[in-house]
């Protein structure tokens, strides 16, 4: 009974946070919805007796991804005119969700046909010890490959984010003429500060 009510509450926050994430207009509200959704998902991992995934979810999705996204958005100093103009976004989202219902039903039927039921957990399930044993005995090669992936992502992130000299030249903007540049030019930018 307690588990069912917890599942209901966590599921409500998960879905509501996800809807806010994709439907809100301001980017700060998107991140706030994402944060709520991820915390609720961590609670669901805990409900599934999976304490290690609960910890990993809190540390990675909440502690790293959401915080990093907040920092990036704050650093970008987004203005209203620099964002996409989407007056009909809620209607489009509702339409796309209605279109996706048949796909979801098919996936649900396929999953429900597997006949998996949740029985009381075995001794030591979901603990760090058993997970580490599985990880380093059966999944050693994928684990090492993931470390190479993380290294490549780190190098690529540094390489992408540091190429600033080319894009900060004025000729680049004269060539492409994006629509939001005119509003930026009038503000006291780099010339007046120098």
């Amino acid at each position: 009974m307690l588990e069912n009510s917890l599942l209901f509450i966590l599921g409500f926050f998960l879905i509501a946070g996800a809807l806010v994430t994709i439907a809100a207009k301001e980017v700060a509200y998107n991140i706030a919805g994402f944060l709520i959704s991820m915390i609720a998902l961590a609670g669901l991992f805990g409900l599934l007796d999976n304490s290690f995934l609960f910890l990993a979810q809190i540390m990675i999705s909440v502690g790293a991804v959401a915080v990093l996204a907040t920092i990036v958005i704050m650093t970008l100093n987004l203005r209203f005119e620099n964002q996409a103009y989407e007056p009909n976004r809620v209607r489009i989202i509702i339409g796309v969700l209605l279109l996706e219902i048949p796909i979801g039903l098919v996936i649900y039927k396929a999953l429900a046909a597997s006949g998996l039921v949740i029985t009381p957990a075995a001794e030591g399930y979901g603990t760090l010890k058993s997970l580490g044993k599985t990880l380093f005995e059966e999944w050693l090669v994928p684990f090492e490959l993931v470390s190479i992936l993380l290294l490549a992502a780190m190098i690529a992130a540094i390489a992408i984010a540091r190429r600033e000299k080319y894009y900060d030249k004025e000729e680049y903007f004269d060539h492409y003429k994006p629509h939001a540049i005119e509003t930026n030019r009038t503000e006291p930018d780099s010339e007046e500060l120098q």
């Binding site: 998960l14 879905i15 996800a18 809807l19 994430t21 994709i22 959704s37 998902l41 996409a84 989407e86 976004r89 489009i92 989202i93 339409g95 796309v96 969700l97 996706e100 219902i101 796909i103 979801g104 996936i107």
Partner: peptide, 13 residues
């Protein structure tokens, strides 16, 4: 449902 919402966010925003 979470996957559907994510897919809707990617494809409609």
């Amino acid at each position: 449902i979470l996957f559907m919402i994510g897919l809707a966010g990617v494809s409609s925003r």
